[in-house]
Every structure is written in structure tokens, then in C-alpha cells.
Write a protein that binds this DNA or RNA. Structure first.
Length: 884
RNA sequence: GCCGGGGUGGCGGAACUGGUAGACGCGCCGGAUUCAAAAUCCGGUUCUGGAGACAGAGUGCGGGUUCGAUUCCCGCCCCCGGCACCA
């Protein structure tokens, strides 16, 4: 026995560096991952496609491993699986790289794609590479342009002005990301808000449908549905008209019941009333100018100090006729509603703060639900109640909020000063970007004909790929060859639109294109309807709102154009968590932190394993742990998947990333944890090797299909240890099937496979039937681990005497008969505290269980001086004796 | 500021429908093997007290419901994601 194991170790060691490429080339030559394979039901398994930033990072690796495990599991269920891959290849980072290195974005992007494609292939994902696409290819983006023209025809796409960040030094539009503390990231200049003409898509026309359909998206996480619902933000309220001289100012309020408590109005700095008020008033103009500074992002606007200025103008309250002062306020957004609000400081927290600051009247018009007096010096959350009774509201006094709402809206309507109104928070989608590296908007500007659509036969409008941006505006504006073209309508010299499309346009329909990537005649075709909707979509939670909402919207636009049947593109959604790692730093003399990669740091622990210090490997001097953070360049805590794959092989890295955390939670990277995954695979390898060496005949009765109860497995077993092992195998089959197929709890599935592996290793077969059982166990284990670690599984499958691919073998079948237990453990509690555990046969009746529980010595000890009040019996589980 | 999520041993996590808190892995401690080390194998490992049997405490904090709460309810604290031009 001892010698045979020794021999096995000599002839057979786990060497993923040679094994994995060999298995991968076999898959490739057999076209194992083509979506054409398989007879069964279709299963479309999709990952959010990567931005080709340079090299694969851990977030990609995690995303695609989850997708691959699900794809391979579904394939083992006999389904015809589509798992495609592509590149979200337009975008800002390519322009930044171009500026830094003087290389055109196109070259940088395509080089990155080539490198990252190789990295993906080394990870052994079952991707159908025949369907690969990149959004920067004219073959792809021509359909963006073609469809945009359809949207223009239908009036879904239209032009209006929008606000952008303007860097006055570089004379360029900045992305929100490029505005740091209100200043341009390169120039440090104070950023200004600037209005420019842009193209928009009428997503607001679909607001109701996009909202209502969320209820039916049962395969989506609740949190994503809630976030989207709140983003769309449907609110029922009233439009109320205030007169200001000859101007009518319309505002929207969700609380018309508080109208009698309105004591002032506030308008956005860009509002026409503000512009009017600034005439001849330098102080007001100065305030407006100040508001024009800084970035346009809502986070910046909403978190800044609430400030305002009195315009000196007043508006007439539509019901009381009172003159309300009109303020310009920096917290009122021109882009939401009408850019003006009525302020009811007594019942709105922001208005309350503003009124306190500028000493404006605060008039409570709802009684506090708790009956206490209104305290105008301090905000209390119940001031925003909708459950009170109206006061100080003239003839509305005594009404409930709901009654007041209706009565006041009715009176406003009668007076022609308002009406009930539904308002959405959602705004139309601005798709114009003043950038080079994107899909050109197919418009030609003619001095006579205006904005003329490019005729379909002239598509695609091809983006020149040799330009290098320098940070000062869009290089397309200086590219004569692109710019100048005759007007398609009148033929005289005209210029192309130089704005490109938001990259969210590219990512709003790429999943449709995978189904027909080789079709050069149409955007989508019959294959699209055959594959759609996507059965399982996997990607980062950071896309919960924008990308996923735009994709839902765009799919509806294509439905309404008659191009696809479905409205909802993604039936099931899994939002994966981020990948984190420990950070280490030192602070230099200037107080700046210098960050060190975890790979370059040694950590020391005390006798109990607690971390007591960390030192830099290169100099042995201490570094400070900075906590666990998202892997990022700025904290230098990124771990490169490619180098880990080089060291341990893909299977180890895949196994660790699926084992260390459930997919929806953040995953903390740990080199020691990767070692653990590596050890497990080596034990698995040597366990199988020992079995096949020691029992070579066990593998000669090999089957080419999954073992199941109908094969007569399990017959002839009598030893309890053998029955227990077989039960553990079949419990694992049940558990892993549920974890992979329903729960997506890959971590617990792997845990039970590790436990099963430990049990097989402990078991020493004594009869030929028991050897057959061990063979059954190894086969089942290899099949079940295959979706996670496909390379080692293919190899072990063959070593166990099976022919063909483990993925063709299907999924092991649970034998219910094997699950039956002889004895179960029942917990006995006294007053809710566990005092004993008793072994009983299953299915015992309540009275017997209760008696057995009371006979326990330890239980008697706790009951000695007490009277039993009540006994709760949960059959096969627990007895709780309540005593005093 | 607004919307959403999270917080359990030294660490990652498990406990799926209110019923044994800590599966599995890492780390650490002890042992075997070794001239020695690495690797490997075996045992232990929530904390406190106890030689042990066992007892007490314990799931971010404070309260509540319940025979029983990591799980449900109320109030707080901290961390993370998104906020419409990063992708």
C-alpha cells in the first residue's frame, strides 16, 4: 500500500502549466464551445463586455469565471449554450492614453484587445470566439448610425441644448470624472457650466413602461429593481402656476396639500426669472456667475452648501393672493421639472434650512401626528408627514393631507392656476459627446439645409483612426478629410457633425449583435429572436442603473422598429461584487502616501495568528496597513490575474475566486487563500491517482455516461462507513446542483465538494463493491467540480477510465434512496439554551421525543428546581422545554 | 445631499422558510515525516473560567416582538456602490 502510493507520486504530478494548454487546444480543435453545439433548449449566458484598458484585471477574471461556471453547468444539463465575448472599445481612456503616449486611440485599443483576448483564452473560458465583436469596428457601429437615423425619422432622437463642464483654458468639454473639486484635472482652471446643442433620445416617453415592467423582472435582484424605480422616480402631485408680473411660473409639487404653507419661491440660477432679476443688479449677477462655476454632476450640486439670493421680485400665491419673495437658489436644478419650486419650509427639510438661513417665514400647515407644538427652531422628521390634519389653511383646516391634496388641486384647476400632474425624475438621454474616440453621429451641417441626416447608402460614416487628441477639443474638428463633404440634399460644401455618440449607445445592444455577428446586411436577424432574451446576465453592481436602463430602453426602441420581439433583454441578472485587496502605505515628508503592492509586503503575526506588523520585502522597514479597498491603480493593490495563472494555472485562480465569497458580495483577495485552492487541486489529483493506481480494475468497467441509481450503484454495500460515504456523495450532488443551478452559491457548492473529497480520502475500501463506490464518488466529484476547474476535471475524467469530455457526460443524478439516514441528532433546549443533543431514529412522534428529551441527565439537572410551563417540539430537529 | 447595499472567530466566509452560531478554506498552535528545511500528513483552534465534565458571554450599537432572533420590527453608528460625460 505504502509503496504503491509512493510510486504514484513519482509517475503522476499535477502540472497545470502543461495540462491546461493541452486541454484548451483540444477544446479548440473540437470546436467544443460553439453555440451551434447541443440539441437541447437554448441558454444565453452573457457577461458585461470589458473595456479594453490594457490587461485583464481581477474584476474581469471574477465576472467571466462566474459566467463560465454557469455556462458549463448549463451545458452539462444538456443545453445549447451561447457564451460570447466582445469589446466595449470606444471611450475616454483611449484618448487619455493617446495624450500620454502619443499613440492613436485606435492602435492602443486594438493592441489591448489582442493582449486581453490571449489572457482570456489562457483562463479556459468556454467562449464562442466566432462571434467576437468590438464596438470600434465600422461593421458594428454602422448599425448605431443606421438606427439613430430611424430614431430621427420617428422623432425619438431630437436636438436641444444641454449643460456641460467647460474648461476655459483647454477650451474643451470635460467629463464629470475630469472635474476635480470644481477644477479641470489637467489645467486646474475653474470649470464653467456651458450650454451647447446636443442630440437626445426620448427615454422619458418610455418612463411608464420601463417602470411598470420592473415588476415582472423576477429574475433581477430586488435592489436593482428598486434603484431603477427610484431613478425613474414617478411622483404624483400637481403643477401650480404662480404669477410674477406678466410671467407665469409653473412649479411641480408632490405636496399641494401644503400649498397654504408656501412662503417663498426658489428658481434655478439659469431660470429666465433669474436672468431678468439680474438686469441692473450686480450682486444678483455675481451670484448667478458664481453658480455657473463648478461641475455639473448632481452629487456636487446636491452636497454643496444651500445658498441663495433674493431677487426682489415676488410671485402671487394662486389661492391667497399673498406676494411671495422669489429667491435664486443653487440647489434648484434647471434640468429637473421646470427649474422652479414653491418652498414650504415648515414641511420640507431643505426649504426649512434655507428659510432659517435667510430668515424667511415658516408657517406650519399640518398638525404634528404626536400632537406636540411645532418648533420652528429645529427640524423634526415628522414635519414631512402625510398623516396629519391641515391647520392655518383657511377653509382647508381640518382636512386630512389626502383630502387637502384633492380639494386644493380642484380649486387650482377651477382658478386656472394648476392641475394634477405626474412627474418623472428621469430625464431624456443626451447622447452627444464632444469627443473623438466614439461612433460619429451621422449628420451633415449645411449652411442652407441645416442638419441633414447622412443617407443610408453612405453609411457607415467611418471614424478616421490615425488622429491623436491633445486635450484641447475634438481633433475631428481639425480633420479636413473627415469634416468636409457635400450636403446630401443640395450638394454644396457642408461639414460633418463632429460629436460622437455616448458609449452607452454601443453597450445598449451589443448582446443582440452576438446572435448574428457575421450578418453584414442587417443589424439583427432571425437568430436574434431565437436566442433572446439573455437567460443570465452577469456584471458589476455599478451598472445597476445607467447601462441596464439604457439597454432596456434601446431594446424597446428596436422592438418598436420591428427588429426584435422582446422588450426585456435580460431575463436573469446577477450583479457581482467588487474585488478588494489589502493596502499598505508609508507617508513621505510632504505628508503624501506612497502605496505598496501587497506582493511586496511581508506580514507578521502573533502566536494566535493576529496581524501585528507589516514590512516591505525590499528594505525590511515597516509599512502601515491601510485597510481593504477595491483593487485600483491609485492604491497600488492590484493583483495581476495573468501572473497568478502563470504560477498556479487557471483552475486554481478560478477555484479561489469562486470559493472565497458568494458572487454578489465583494471578494477579498488573499494569496494564502489561492495557496489553499492550489492545495485542494493537488490533493484531488493525488487522491484520484492513488485510487487508479491501487485499483486499476475499478476503471475498466467504465461507463461513458453519468452514474445513477439505475446503474445498480450502491448494491452490495453493508458497512455503515460505506453507506455514510455514499449518502455524503448524494447529499453533495443534491446540494451542488441546487447551489449551481438555483442559488448561484458557488462558494458553498465548492465547500461541500471539498468536504466530500475529505470523506473519500478517509475511506478505505474493503470489498470490490466498496472500490466501485469510491470510483462512483470520484466520478461524481470530478463532474461537479468541472464547471469551476474544467482543465483538471477533463484530465481526471480520463484518468478514471472515461472516454470523451466530462462536459459531454452530463450531470450526476442524485439517488434519493442513498439519502436515508439511520439516526438523526435532535437538540434539547431548556429555556432556549442548548443543554443536550440526543440521537434518535427519524420520524419520531412529538410525545416520544419530549420524553426522551426529559430523560437527559443534563436537562434534568437544569429542571430540578423548576416547573415545566410549556414544551415546544419541532420534529426531527429540536425540543425546547420552557420552565420557571 | 438623495437612492441602494453591507457589518458574524485572528481572516475570507457558512447557517437557504424564526429552530444546534461558526460548515468549508486561510492563518495560528501541537505532533508525525526529515540530518535539516520546504512540501506533505495527523490533531487542535469563537472568547472567558475550568485539569475536565461543564458553565457564562457572543453575530456593528441601543431597544422591541417571540418558547426561541445572525434572520422580523424601531432608532442609531460605521463602511461600500450609484447620482445621468469613467466604464
Amino acid at each position: 500500500m505504502f509503496e504503491s502510493i509512493k510510486a504514484v507520486q513519482l509517475v503522476s504530478t499535477y502540472n497545470p502549466q502543461s495540462l491546461e494548454p493541452e486541454i484548451q487546444s483540444r477544446w479548440q480543435s473540437q470546436r467544443a464551445h460553439s453555440a451551434e453545439n447541443g440539441e437541447g433548449e437554448r441558454f444565453y449566458c452573457l457577461s458585461m463586455f470589458p473595456y479594453p484598458s490594457g490587461k485583464l484585471h481581477m474584476g474581469h477574471m471574477r465576472n467571466y469565471t462566474i459566467c463560465d461556471v454557469i455556462s458549463r453547468y448549463q451545458r452539462m444539463q444538456g443545453k445549447k449554450v451561447l457564451q460570447p465575448m466582445g469589446w466595449d472599445a470606444f471611450g475616454l481612456p483611449a484618448e487619455n492614453a493617446a495624450m500620454a503616449h502619443g499613440v492613436p486611440p485606435a492602435k492602443w485599443t486594438r493592441d489591448n484587445i489582442a493582449h486581453m483576448r490571449d489572457q482570456l483564452k489562457a483562463l479556459g473560458f468556454a467562449i464562442d470566439w466566432d462571434r467576437e465583436l468590438a464596438t470600434c469596428d465600422p461593421d458594428y457601429y454602422r448599425w448605431n448610425q443606421w438606427f439613430f437615423l430611424r430614431l430621427l425619422d420617428r422623432g425619438v432622437a431630437y436636438q436641444k441644448t444641454g449643460t456641460v463642464n467647460w474648461d476655459p483654458v483647454d477650451q474643451t468639454v470635460l467629463a464629470n470624472e475630469q472635474v476635480v473639486d470644481g477644477r479641470g484635472w489637467r489645467t486646474g482652471a475653474l470649470v464653467e457650466k456651458r450650454e451647447i446643442p446636443m442630440y437626445y433620445l426620448r427615454i422619458t416617453d418610455y418612463a411608464d413602461e420601463l417602470l411598470a415592467a420592473l415588476d415582472e423582472l423576477e429574475g433581477w435582484p430586488d435592489r436593482v429593481r428598486v434603484m431603477q424605480a427610484n431613478w425613474i422616480g414617478k411622483s404624483e402631485g400637481a403643477a401650480v402656476v404662480f404669477q410674477c408680473g406678466e410671467h407665469a411660473i409653473e412649479v411641480f409639487t408632490t405636496r399641494p396639500d401644503t400649498l397654504m404653507g408656501a412662503t417663498f419661491m426658489a428658481v434655478a440660477p439659469e431660470h429666465p426669472i433669474a436672468t431678468q432679476a439680474a438686469e441692473g443688479r450686480a450682486d444678483i449677477q455675481a451670484f448667478i456667475d458664481e453658480c455657473q462655476q463648478g461641475g455639473v454632476s448632481e452629487a456636487d450640486l446636491a452636497s454643496q452648501e444651500k445658498r441663495g439670493i433674493d431677487t426682489g421680485l415676488t410671485a402671487t400665491h394662486p389661492l391667497t393672493g399673498d406676494a411671495l419673495p422669489i429667491f435664486i437658489a443653487n440647489y434648484v436644478l434647471m434640468s429637473y421639472g421646470s427649474g422652479a419650486v414653491m418652498a414650504v419650509p415648515a414641511h420640507d427639510e431643505r426649504d426649512f434650512e434655507f428659510a432659517r438661513r435667510y430668515e424667511l417665514a415658516i408657517v406650519p400647515v399640518i398638525e404634528r401626528p404626536n400632537g406636540e407644538a411645532y418648533d420652528a427652531t429645529q427640524w423634526h422628521d415628522d414635519y414631512a408627514t402625510k398623516e396629519g390634519t391641515l391647520i392655518n389653511s383657511g377653509r382647508y383646516d381640518g382636512l386630512t393631507c389626502q383630502q387637502g391634496f384633492e380639494a386644493i388641486v380642484a380649486d387650482l384647476a377651477k382658478a386656472g392656476a394648476g392641475r394634477a400632474k405626474t412627474q418623472f425624475r428621469l430625464r431624456d438621454w443626451g447622447i452627444s459627446r464632444q469627443r473623438y474616440w466614439g461612433c460619429p453621429i451621422p449628420i451633415i451641417h449645411c449652411p442652407d439645409c441645416g442638419a441633414v441626416p447622412v443617407p443610408d447608402e453612405d453609411l457607415p460614416v467611418v471614424l478616421p483612426e490615425d488622429l491623436v487628441p491633445d486635450g484641447s477639443g475634438n481633433p475631428l474638428k481639425r480633420c479636413e478629410a473627415f469634416l468636409n463633404t457635400p450636403c446630401p440634399r443640395c450638394g454644396q460644401p457642408a461639414q460633418r457633425e463632429t460629436d460622437t455618440m455616448d458609449t452607452f449607445v454601443d453597450s445598449s445592444w451589443y448582446f443582440l449583435r452576438y446572435t448574428c455577428a457575421d450578418n453584414d446586411q442587417a443589424m439583427v436577424d432571425d437568430n436574434t429572436n431565437a436566442w433572446m432574451p439573455v437567460d443570465q446576465y452577469i456584471g458589476g453592481i455599478e451598472h445597476a442603473i445607467l447601462h441596464l436602463l439604457y439597454a432596456r430602453f434601446w431594446t424597446r426602441l428596436m422592438r418598436d422598429e420591428g427588429l426584435v420581439d422582446v422588450a426585456e433583454p435580460f431575463a436573469h441578472l446577477l450583479t457581482q461584487g467588487m474585488v478588494l485587496a489589502e493596502t499598505y502605505y508609508r507617508t513621505d515628508n510632504a505628508g503624501r502616501a506612497q502605496w505598496f503592492n501587497p506582493n511586496d509586503v511581508d506580514v507578521s503575526t502573533d502566536q494566535k495568528g493576529r496581524v501585528v506588523g507589516a514590512t516591505l520585502k525590499s528594505d525590511g522597514q515597516p509599512v502601515t496597513p491601510g485597510g481593504v479597498e477595491k483593487m485600483a491603480k491609485s492604491k497600488n493593490n492590484g493583483v495581476d490575474p495573468a501572473s497568478l495563472v502563470g504560477h498556479y494555472g487557471a483552475d486554481t485562480v478560478r477555484l479561489f475566486s469562486m470559493f472565497a465569497a458568494p458572487p454578489e458580495q465583494s471578494l477579498e483577495w488573499s494569496d494564502a487563500g489561492v495557496e489553499g485552492a492550489w492545495r485542494f487541486l493537488r490533493r484531488l489529483w493525488s487522491g484520484v491517482a492513488a485510487h487508479t493506481e491501487h485499483h486499476p480494475d475499478a476503471t475498466t468497467h467504465a461507463t461513458t455516461h453519468a452514474p445513477s441509481s439505475s446503474d445498480g450503484q450502491g448494491e452490495g454495500l453493508s458497512r455503515q462507513a460505506a453507506l455514510d460515504l455514499r449518502r455524503q456523495l448524494h447529499e453533495a450532488i443534491q446540494k451542488v446542483d441546487d447551489d449551481f443551478g438555483r442559488r448561484y452559491a458557488f462558494n458553498t457548492a465548492i465547500a461541500s465538494l471539498m468536504a466530500l473529497s475529505n470523506e473519500i480520502g478517509r475511506f478505505e475500501p474493503e470489498t470490490p463493491q466498496e472500490v466501485a463506490l469510491v470510483q462512483e464518488c470520484w466520478l461524481g466529484l470530478v463532474q461537479m467540480i468541472a464547471p469551476v476547474t474544467p482543465h483538471i476535471a477533463e484530465s481526471l475524467w480520463q484518468q478514471l477510465g472515461q472516454t470523451g469530455s466530462v462536459f459531454a457526460a452530463g450531470w450526476p443524478v442524485c439517488d434519493e434512496a442513498a439519502l436515508v439516514k439511520q439516526a438523526i441528532t435532535v437538540v434539547v433546549q431548556v429555556n432556549g439554551k442548548v443543554r443536550d443533543r440526543i440521537e434518535v431514529s427519524p420520524g419520531l412522534d412529538q410525545a416520544t421525543l419530549e420524553d426522551k428529551a426529559k430523560q437527559s441527565d443534563n436537562v434534568e439537572r437544569f429542571l430540578s428546581d423548576k416547573t415545566i410551563r410549556k414544551v415546544i417540539v419541532v420534529p426531527d430537529k429540536l425540543v425546547n422545554i420552557v420552565a420557571q
